[in-house]
Amino acid sequence: MSPAGVPMVQAQSVQKSFGRLEVLKGIDLEVAPRDVFCLVGPSGSGKSTFLRCINHLEKIDGGRLSVDGELVGYRQKGDKLYELRDREVCQKRQEIGMVFQSFNLFPHMTALANVMEAPCRVRGEAKATVRDRAHKLLDRVGLSEKADNYPAQLSGGQQQRVAIARALAMEPKLMLFDEPTSALDPELVGEVLDVMRGLAEDGMTMIVVTHEMGFAREVGDALVFMDEGVVVEAGHPRDVITNPQHDRTKAFLSKVL
């Protein structure tokens, strides 16, 4: 990891259960600032759950999870933990962008309104400045001409790019991608990955849950292979993908490559 400064995300034996089912069985990992961190693994391995813990969409049951040096969901005073209030949780989420597998654009708003909603309503910024920024962001994801279209009028790839612009509008320091291309037709995957590649080049810290090994190998700075709630193998994407050490990693990669 980078010697200077705190890691962007630090997980120490993070544990999470749904009822009796233990989904995360002690995850340890560190994400350095400006890195593209790829999480891969079979479905049900807990990678999406872990991603959702980072912005407190899921509450962790054990261990420590911190973003930029601050605990997620709690405040520590002495050796006591205090749960954060809803308002404080919202405040922290504003600094973390998230992109979903199923886009989740607001269908009753135009692409532009989708991008403008949070900066205007949550941060109370002036409409005019937000509109300028929103136009620039839509331009950046190559959709300046679709600003006035509703999500239903856009292709899956276009919707996902609007969703990325919407997350960027809050000027996050960390972006979470939860299988951003899994719901897309194969010919639309490239346009979304191109936008993500551009983000990576601009130095955005990104955690990407993905099955796109090509993207991981080409853009990723670190890769973690998860299975059944544990980290099986971690390393540089090139090393893990071309020379996996564990049998489980080998088995998984032989299926997706």
Binding site: D86, R93, F100, N104, F106, P107, A163
Partner: peptide, 26 residues
């Protein structure tokens, strides 16, 4: 859809604002 509330939460929208701006109109 539950994803709508999740998307709004991920943007840092408080619960009542999400209800008023995102859920009720739909």
């Amino acid at each position: 859809d539950e994803g709508q509330v999740e998307a709004a939460s991920a943007l840092g929208m408080p619960r009542l604002l999400t209800m008023r701006r995102i859920v009720l109109p739909q």
